[in-house]
Amino acid sequence: MSIHKFGIPSLLPENIKLLSGPGCPVCVTSRYFIDDTVACSKIDDVILTTLGDLIRVPGTETSLHEEKSAGRDIRIVYSVLDAIKIAQDNRDKKIVFPGIGFETTAPLSAAAILQATEIGLDNFYILSAHKIMPPVMAALIDEGVNIDGYICPGHVSVITGTQIYEPIVKNYALGCVVSGFEPLDILQSIYMLVHQIEKGQPELENQYCRAVKPEGNIKAQKMMYRVFKTRDDWWRGIGIIPDSGLSLTDEFKAFDAGQLFESLPGTHSDKDKGCICGEILKGLKTPEDCPLFSKACTPVDPVGACMVSSEGSCAAWYKYARGAV
């Protein structure tokens, strides 16, 4: 997203190509997760609180946006903190918060649950679609995606530290540069990665030293792993990756929104009416290769998740790069 926002691709020579990996939490999340959030919102007494990111993502039948217009109590919040506040103010209702995001965001959900425990809130629930980064980075290479190095997400690394990328460098001989989000951060990171490739010495470098420590934010990691444990999870375009998602530990099961409804979670599938999001996420194709792109599928009327989140590859492409200026 930042990469497109600043117009960085237009500055690079032709032999440097940037692919957007599965770094957008909304894009990699299953359509069925949206169906689950919609199902939650239909339960009597539930107030569904959601981050703005999810509101327009299409589910199988409908989106939260449509359900809100149809009269469900769906509230857009900026933070899970707001959801806790709503739970405190509405003790007779059940407040559900869909947890999306990687290591940057999962500790926030964990902190909220710990706070709920402390203040004795028993009407706050999380529907977790939280995921973690390292398994998918390895899976991509295993799938044969042809890349020369990773620009690693700075704000995930703020929590995890740079250490999580060591196996990528060691096992796959690929360079990893942890990058900040200012335009010059990104340019510098690209430069560092190119330099590594030229030298033929892939290594782990940290461009974003001002916020990322090698060990990361240990307090946040501890909270995250007290409340969550890893589980196998499904990724759009990739499928099931072992130990790549987060679910609540037994100690905090009481906060799991899953218990609120009986219906079994749907089966995940990649077949989104001709959407090739998956291959785009893997960097095998660009949005221009999708026959639906900017025709049947636009940000106003998205088919796949990649078009919904403004950070999704297709939305970013549509918004910033169409017609390759």
Partner: peptide, 9 residues
């Protein structure tokens, strides 16, 4: 034309 000289739509 972005502040760093790139461009986007």
């Amino acid at each position: 034309e972005t502040e760093i000289g790139g461009s986007r739509i």
